[in-house]
Design a protein around this nucleic acid. Structure first.
Lengths: 219, 219
DNA sequence: ATGGCTTTGTCAGCTTCTTGTCAGGGGCCT
DNA sequence: AGGCCCCTGACAAGAAGCTGACAAAGCCAT
C-alpha cells in the first residue's frame, strides 16, 4: 500500500515511517502542503496521513480543496488538537479518521488497516514484463503508457504464458487452455492468435521455438 | 447530536453507546418499538439507529409508519439480515443507510458522520467521473449540471462499478451484486441494465469487453 | 382495495466484433 | 533446392451485445 505522510515534525515522522515500513507498506514523506500537492497530482496513493499544522498552511482547507477536486483517497488526520470542534471540522472536510497526538503506533497500524479494508478499491498487484504492466484482477494491460485491450481468447492465451513465465508451451497445451476438451481445431488457430498477441503487445513478447511451441520471451 | 438507538441486544447496544459517547454525541437507548414511538413523539432526534428485529415488532413497518407521518429524521438500519431484498426493502422504506451486523464501530462512526453532514448542509465528498458527480452518501448523481435519478437496480450496478473503477466485472459478478444467490436470471438482464445506465449517464461511461464483461470507462 | 405510474425482466431484430480458416509468402535446416 | 514450419492479411460466419417495446409486478396516493 502506498501511503503519503504530510508531517513537519521530524521525530514523529520518523516513528511513523518505521512503523509503516514494519507493516510492509511504502511511504512517501513530505513536510509541506505544496510538496503534498505535487505528490498527489502524480501517482495514486492509497492513503494520506495529514498533519493539520504545517509550515505553509493548515490541513483542513487543504483537505477540503482535495475533496473539491474529486480526490477520494482516504485521509487520516494526525493532530495535536483535541477539541471536538476540530474533530468535526476534520471529518466534515472529508477525513476518514482522526488521530490525536501523541498516539500509539500500534493504533495507527490498526486504523491504517481498517481504512484500507474499508476502501478496498485499491490498485491491484501488477505483473510487469518489460514495458508491459498487467493487472490480473482487473484484467487491464498497459504497454508503455498506452492501454491495450485484449479479446477474450487473447487474454486467455496471454494468461497462460504469464502463469508459466519462460516455460515452453506446446500448441497442444495452448489449445487445451483455450478450448474445451473435445473441440477440435484443425488449422493454424494458435499461430493466428500468437500473431494477434504479438501485434498488440510487441513482436518480442512471445518467442517461437520451432517445432516445439512458444514461450514468454525474456523482458 | 441527539441519537436514538432502538436495539434489544444488550451487548451490541452497550458497544454502540460507548462508541457514540466517544464521538461526543448524546444517546437515548430503547429496546422496544412502543418505547421508541414514545421517545420520537417528544423532542427531535437528529438520528435514529434502528434494529429490524425487536421483541414487539419489525423495524420496516415501523419505519414506514414513521415516514408516513412525515417524520424525516435520518434513520440508519442495523440488522443481521444481509439479503439484498431486505436491503432494498429497508432503503425503500425510507432508511438513509444500512449496516449489517456484525459491523465495525469505526464504520458506524463514519456513517453517523456522513448522515449528520448530509443534513447539516455541508457537502459530502464527491466522486467525479468525467462530467458525472456522485455523492455516494446521499445517493445523488449529477451529470453536467443536471440531476440524474437512478432506480434501485441501476444504482446497485453503478455502485459496483464505482467500487472497482476500471476493473473488469463479468456479467456473473454483476448478477451476484444485483441479485440474491440462487435467483437465476436467464436472459440479457444485465445487458439491459447496462443499456439503461448508459442512456442516463452517457454512452462512454461503461465500456464493453466483448466476451468478458464490462468496466467503468476512463473519465 | 383501486387506479395510475414506475420499475424491471424478457424478447426480437438488428448491429458489431471476434475468431477460425485459408492462402500466399518467408525463413530455417538438411 | 526442397521440404517443413511459421507468419500474417483477409474474410465470412456466427457469437455477443445493444436497444426499443412490452407486460408483469411493485409502489404510491387517493
Amino acid at each position: 500500500m502506498r501511503i503519503l505522510l504530510i508531517e513537519d515534525d521530524k521525530v514523529l515522522g520518523m516513528a511513523v515511517r518505521d512503523q509503516i515500513a514494519a507493516d510492509g507498506h511504502s511511504l512517501d514523506w513530505v513536510e509541506r502542503l505544496d510538496e503534498a500537492r505535487a505528490a498527489l497530482n502524480g501517482a495514486g496513493f492509497d492513503l494520506v496521513l495529514l498533519d493539520l499544522m504545517l509550515p505553509d498552511g493548515l490541513g483542513v482547507p487543504f483537505l477540503k480543496a482535495l475533496r473539491q477536486r474529486g480526490d477520494v483517497t482516504p485521509v487520516i488526520i494526525l493532530t495535536a488538537l483535541d477539541q471536538l470542534s476540530d474533530r468535526l471540522e476534520g471529518l466534515n472536510a472529508g477525513a476518514d479518521d482522526y488521530m490525536v497526538k501523541p498516539f500509539d503506533l500500534e493504533e495507527l497500524s490498526a486504523r491504517i488497516g481498517s481504512v484500507a479494508r474499508r476502501y478496498s478499491g485499491n490498485p491491484n498487484p501488477l505483473v510487469t514484463h518489460g514495458d508491459i504492466e498487467v493487472d490480473l484482477a482487473a484484467r487491464r494491460i498497459t504497454k508503455g503508457q498506452r492501454e491495450v485491450s485484449l479479446t477474450a481468447r487473447e487474454w486467455a492465451m496471454f494468461e497462460a504464458f504469464l502463469n508459466r513465465p519462460g516455460q515452453l508451451l506446446s500448441k497442444a497445451q495452448l489449445e487445451d487452455k483455450l478450448y474445451e476438451f473435445g473441440s477440435e481445431v484443425e488449422s493454424n488457430t494458435i499461430e493466428a492468435h500468437v500473431s494477434r498477441l504479438r501485434k498488440k503487445l510487441g513482436q518480442n513478447v512471445i518467442k517461437t521455438e520451432r517445432g516445439m511451441g512458444y514461450r514468454l520471451g525474456p523482458a
